[in-house]
Nucleic acid binder design. Sequence first.
DNA 1: CCGCAATGGAACATCACTGTTCCATTGCGG
DNA 2: CCGCAATGGAACAGTGATGTTCCATTGCGG
Lengths: 189, 189
Amino acid sequence: MSSRDESGSRARTRQAILQAAIEVLSRNQTASLGEIATAAQVGRTTLHRYFAERSDLLAAVAAEGASRLNEATTRARLAEGTGAEALLRLCAAYFDLGDLLSLVFSEPALVNDPAWSTEVCDDDFHAMVARGHADGSIDPALPATWLQSVLWSQLYAGWSYLTDHQISRHEALALVLRTLTNAVKPHPG
Amino acid sequence: MSSRDESGSRARTRQAILQAAIEVLSRNQTASLGEIATAAQVGRTTLHRYFAERSDLLAAVAAEGASRLNEATTRARLAEGTGAEALLRLCAAYFDLGDLLSLVFSEPALVNDPAWSTEVCDDDFHAMVARGHADGSIDPALPATWLQSVLWSQLYAGWSYLTDHQISRHEALALVLRTLTNAVKPHPG
DNA sequence: CCGCAATGGAACATCACTGTTCCATTGCGG
DNA sequence: CCGCAATGGAACAGTGATGTTCCATTGCGG
């Protein structure tokens, strides 16, 4: 606690604010800074000390979100198995992001602006879908860009279904995976 | 033009404001009344003459939305054909609602609050899905409430895909229908 | 125990949106 | 042509969020 003690306390408060911001903003994108500060159990003054303006906080949230998305994408190992298998792994990994799902879905600009999507994930995603088209595990009628929309809309549907209905996290994910499995499977006819 | 002349001019202005509100609010739920008035090519004062407070305008938008949704649901004739066929007709009918899709999706309370969902559409929807489960056209693993979420999330995905990418309305709808068809089809395995 | 970092609260000016009032202009029917 | 309905613009006060400053309190390390 000697060398990085300053960071210890400050980093903890900063993380608490960021986490509260993700939770509150996922429910209401226009929530006031006061609400976020309260949710973080922090005074509004303190919040301003860490993020001078609202835009600074939003930028930090975007960076945090991009970071978590990148980690989840890495964990999904898109290059392994059939295209469909990788897509389902990616779906499950993203589902664990929780509140962040609503935030990314309702404000895609937050994480897509900093040229993030084309950096790491977009190319890998396209490669995965192309593999799926080639190995016959993904319906060739569904292009990669569309499947990206489908993936996110299903994730959002599953997450809001989880929060609205009396259902376990596991059951909600099962519904999403079942639906997505069906959706991408090529049908013989 | 004698008896209802007053309604003629006033009704036209009112509809222009409502349509502008739907278009603007679908892009930004927190748009100011000034933006809506400008989009409707109407002074802000005039807007306030028709809708005294913001909540009055929102209520009118909700009523208009509920009306259009009911008409679209009727046009889909949910009682005819297999459950899956009816679901696809409903999807196509809703897709024609355009901007309203984003609005309903981002603020479901707008149309669901006035006890609308359980009035006409919800029961018919459940009956349709039950028929689909029975006639083997809809995967029994997918409950009706979940399919409702899936339907709306797919509609939203298709509509935003249409506005984001270089693609025709028909092609976007084709992608949605293809995906939904696959998603609900029971798979033999 | 002292000192500094971190924090919380109060107070303040600023700003955008809102809702209202008043007045001038337009346009159509009688 | 007159009168009324509809409209648009300007101005205003009220409200809530924002960003800033100042000061008191807490807590931990030296």
